[in-house]
Every structure is written in structure tokens, then in C-alpha cells.
Design a protein around this nucleic acid. Structure first.
Length: 492
RNA sequence: GGCGCAUUCGUCUAGCGGCCAAGGACGCCGCCCUCUCAAGGCGGAGAUCACGGGUUCGAAUCCCGUAUGCGCUACCA
């Protein structure tokens, strides 16, 4: 394929959600697959909807996922600037050119006039659309209204008849009757272009070869095709991606609590899992492969294998996949990634404030292997490891489990104390070597005895395997906690 | 309302005319492993392929219609 140049063109109206960032991913994968360029362009032409910090969130989201861009904010490039508000002159120039060439015209209708127009159309059960009343104004009339200081917009002069067909790389040929299109606005009264104009002007100026965007843009595409023709430009190839839906199958939005991609980061999802998962929302390799790393994804990615139907974001499957990726990590790497989640303030989900920061790296290194296969997200770690750092409070009855008498429990703990004191190597294997026989000596079922020790040593009925846990905790902590447990059981 | 797009297990999907009385994954259920929880292994339930007509020797796959869903229909993107 000749020179692939694709772009991700978000609007800084908030932090990007998964649907949004999935579009970025597909563009990135397509560019990397073909050895082309991935460009980021910021479409900030709606001054009213700008959200402070949104641009940073967008770029941060891309960085987190490792979607590096060849041209765009921060890195620049030969077709910059890459922020539309800094390219105003270009749009105005093209809009004026269209007016001069008879492909567009100034419209003086006020928002109120338009609202009223729509109201009347609705009353008459007509489709709401601009009635083109400014399309055929005389030169004198225009001069008069402009002299009167009336504000205007530039509207595209849509052909009244005919059809506009185009080939979508995913949908095939799509045809629209021009009669169903209205004279859409190109340049707003504040001088900013609308999406339609800015998009077309920039995609051309930036030599974009393929426009890959969400399906919601399909209905706008004939306008763009018409615009390219009026401007005398060759349109790029279009590929409309299936959308990501909320649980109610509607377009993902704030209503669904559309989570920012950065929230997934903060909730402890791995970028590699997130990437794999999002790639599978609308794309698939075959009938069984689900786990693909970034390299495999870019190697195999192709438009032909993109589906046509919208997909609901299935959080449970993401959890599973994240767990898979967590288990694949080398323990040292996992420990490293866990650190921020463990050390952040308790209020933000970190370990209790009573635990001193920074954490003992070596100690953590012994703990991590014990929780690796038990994590679905990094954020779950604090709840799984807190007892390694703190003596947790618990009810004495927890020690007894289902069928232990206080006497048996006490005896068990006391005998364990003795055995642990004399143990030479305080390691998992050695611990099992003395404790398992001890259960028998005591006449207790292994499960009951180990359960008792687990509660005594961790404060929980559920924890990683006992002997490894004890080994990680170390002799001193274990004996101290055993002692405390005996006290909890009260006098014999 | 108009226009457009779509329609395979609850969800993500495979399937591009015969290999499909539909395969995989998540989730769910059961069993195994087992000191708890996980992880892992094995098995199971779960889709008359939206519906109705065609075309064809043969259709989930092609065509038409209907229904449903979604999108667009802004001086929002």
C-alpha cells in the first residue's frame, strides 16, 4: 500500500474513553502495520466545549498505551501546527474560496431564526433542516445586511439533486441522495470552522491517506466527499469503525459513566492488557486467538478483519485478560508496577497509613510471587498484602474455623510455637515438614490445623499458601502473632 | 419523521455456498487438583444463525421485504 498516513483527531472536550481511544489504537496499528505515519491532530474548533486539561489527558492516555505519534502536539511535524485553533487562517481562506467559486454562501440567519425554523418544521411534521433562505440572496441584500452588522456563517451549497456514493473500506459502497443533505455550516460566526470543514481541509493538507473513524461519522461522509470535490481535491479512503457501546447498546457516553482511559490505568489495568482487549473490540485474528501482544497485533492487523457491528465493552473479560497479563509478568517487574498502588495514600486505595513508606523492596520481592496469580488488577494488591505489613485485628472465633474447640486451638498454637522456635531454616519446605506431621500428632485434620495457623499468622481466613506466607513473614512476626493468637483465645 | 448502518450463545467473536444439526473466549455450573483463596485441568448448560420470502442440488453465508437496534439529522465533534 502506498504511503499510509492516518490520524487520530480527538476533540479536547474531556478525557478520552475506551471508544475514543480504540479508534486511536486501530489507526496506530494500521500505521505501524504498513510502516506509515500516525498523526495526532487536536480538533478544538468548538470553543464552548473546551475542557481544561483534556488535551493533556488525551496525550497521557496515548502515552500510557504506548501509542506513539509521528506528528502532532509536542513532536511537531512537516504539516503543523497540529492544533486546529492554530490553523484558523487556512479554514477561512478555503471557505472564502468556496464562496468565491460559488460552492458556498454566507448565511445571515441567527440562532433564534434557525430555532424557530425547526420549531415550525416540527409542527408541520417536516424533517428539520435549514431551508436555504440565504442561498439566493441578491448582492444588494447581502451588502445591506452586512452593513447593518449582521453576523454570518458560511454554508456549503449542497447540490439539490444527484447522488453521492463512496466506497467505505469496511462497509462497501454507500450511497446518499444529495436531496437528503442540507446546506451545512462550514464556518461559524465566531470565525471557527465546523468539524466538516476543518477535517477536510486538514486531512488534505496533512496528506492523510485513510480516514479511520467511528461509525457515527458515516452519515457525514457524503458531505465530506462533496466538499473534497468542491475544493478540487482527491478524497482519502474512508473506513468507518464499529462503535463501542454502553451496556444498553447505545453510543458510549458520560451517561454510562464512560470511563476515561486514565481511570483504567488508576484502577490497575495493564496497558498491554488494555491494548489487547480493545483490539478485540471490533477486530479479530481468527476463531481462537485472543491473547496477542503489541507486536503480534501490529503484524496481523488488517482492515479486512474489522467487524461491522458495535460491541459492548465487557468489563469481566477485561478483568480476566488483565489477570492473564499480570501472571505473565516477571515477578520483579510486577513488584515494580505494584509499588505505586501499594504506596499511594490509603484514601486512594493504597496500604493503610500505618504502613511506613517507602516499602521494603526486598520484603516486597518475597511477597509478590504469592499474590501474582491472585490479582486481577494492580489495585487489588493492598487488600491482599496488608497483613504482611500489619497485625490485623480479628475475632477470636475466626481462629476456631468450623470445628475446632478453643482447647484444641490453644494446644495447636502452643505446639506450633515450640516447633517454630526450634526450626533451623524458616522456609516453606521446612515449615511444611514440621507442621504437617504436627497436625497428625495433635489429631487434627491438616485443613483445620492449617486454617488455625493461617488466621493466627495473617488475621485472615483467606490468604496465600500458608507455608510460603509464613516463610515470607519470617520467624519473628510469626511467633509474635502466634503468641497474640494464644492470648486471644483466653486462659486455658 | 427522513436518511444511513447493522442484526450468530448473556457478552466479545469465528464463519466470506457444502468441512456447521454453528467453533473459540469471558462469565456461569459441576468435577479434579488442593491447607483457604486463586491459578490450572476436565466436563456442562447456553445461538431454531432477528423474522418472512426467494435464488441454489445445497444458505448462518447470495437477493428482496419486514422487524428491531443504533447512528446522523446543531453556528458539537
Amino acid at each position: 500500500m502506498a504511503l499510509v498516513r492516518v490520524r487520530y483527531a480527538p476533540s479536547p472536550t474531556g478525557a478520552p474513553h475506551v471508544g475514543n481511544i480504540r479508534t486511536a489504537l486501530f489507526n496506530w496499528l494500521f500505521a505501524r502495520h504498513h510502516g506509515g505515519s500516525f498523526i495526532v491532530r487536536i480538533e478544538d474548533t468548538d470553543q464552548e466545549r473546551l475542557v481544561p486539561g483534556a488535551l493533556e489527558a488525551i496525550l497521557e492516555g496515548l502515552r500510557w498505551l504506548g501509542l506513539d505519534w509521528d506528528e502532532g502536539p509536542e513532536v511537531g511535524g512537516p504539516y503543523g501546527p497540529y492544533i486546529q485553533s492554530e490553523r484558523q487562517g487556512l479554514y477561512r481562506q478555503e471557505a472564502e474560496r468556496l464562496v468565491a467559486q460559488g460552492h458556498a454562501y454566507r448565511c445571515y440567519c441567527s440562532p433564534q431564526t434557525l430555532a424557530q425554523m425547526r420549531e415550525e418544521q416540527a409542527r408541520r411534521q417536516e424533517p428539520p433542516r435549514y431551508d436555504r433562505r440565504c442561498r439566493e440572496l441578491s448582492a444588494g441584500e447581502r451588502a445591506r445586511r452586512e452593513a447593518a452588522g449582521e453576523r454570518w456563517v458560511v454554508r456549503f451549497q449542497t447540490p439539490l439533486a444527484g447522488q453521492t456514493p463512496f466506497d467505505d473500506l469496511i462497509r462497501g459502497q454507500v450511497v446518499f441522495d444529495n436531496a437528503t443533505l442540507d446546506d451545512f455550516v462550514l464556518l461559524k460566526s465566531d470565525g471557527y470552522p465546523t468539524y466538516h470543514l476543518a477535517n477536510v481541509v486538514d486531512d488534505h493538507a496533512m496528506r492523510i491517506s485513510h480516514v479511520m473513524r467511528a461509525d457515527e461519522w458515516l452519515a457525514s461522509t457524503p458531505r465530506h466527499v462533496l466538499l473534497y470535490a468542491a475544493l478540487g481535491w482527491e478524497p482519502p479512503q474512508f473506513a468507518h469503525l464499529p462503535m463501542i457501546l454502553g451496556p444498553d447498546r447505545a453510543k458510549l457516553s458520560k451517561r454510562h459513566g464512560a470511563t476515561s482511559i486514565l481511570e483504567y490505568r488508576d484502577k490497575g489495568y495493564l496497558p498491554e492488557a488494555m491494548t489487547n482487549f480493545m483490539a478485540l473490540l471490533g477486530w479479530s485474528l481468527d476463531d481462537k486467538t485472543e491473547l496477542l501482544d503489541r507486536e503480534e497485533l501490529t503484524r496481523h492487523f488488517s482492515l479486512e478483519r474489522i467487524g461491522k457491528t458495535g460491541a459492548i465493552f465487557n468489563l469481566e473479560k477485561l478483568d480476566w485478560m488483565n489477570g492473564v497479563y499480570i501472571r505473565k509478568l516477571p515477578p520483579a517487574e510486577l513488584a515494580q508496577r505494584l509499588l505505586p498502588f501499594l504506596e499511594r495514600p490509603e484514601q486512594e486505595g493504597g496500604l493503610p497509613e500505618a504502613v511506613a513508606r517507602p516499602l521494603d523492596r526486598a520484603y516486597l520481592g518475597r511477597i509478590v510471587p504469592l499474590i501474582q496469580e491472585r490479582l486481577k488488577t494492580l489495585a487489588e494488591a493492598p487488600a491482599l498484602v496488608d497483613f504482611f505489613f500489619l497485625n490485623l485485628p480479628y475475632e477470636p472465633s475466626l481462629l476456631l474455623g468450623k470445628r475446632l474447640s478453643p482447647e484444641a486451638a490453644r494446644a495447636g498454637l502452643e505446639r506450633a510455637q515450640v516447633v517454630l522456635k526450634g526450626l533451623v531454616a524458616f522456609e516453606a519446605e521446612a515449615l511444611e515438614g514440621v507442621l504437617r506431621p504436627l497436625a497428625e500428632t495433635l489429631g487434627l485434620k491438616a485443613g483445620d490445623f492449617f486454617g488455625l495457623l493461617r488466621v493466627a499468622v495473617t488475621g485472615r481466613a483467606v490468604a496465600p499458601p500458608l507455608f510460603q506466607t509464613m516463610a515470607a513473614l519470617g520467624r519473628a512476626r510469626c511467633r509474635e502473632r502466634l503468641e497474640a493468637a494464644i492470648k486471644k483465645l483466653g486462659p486455658a
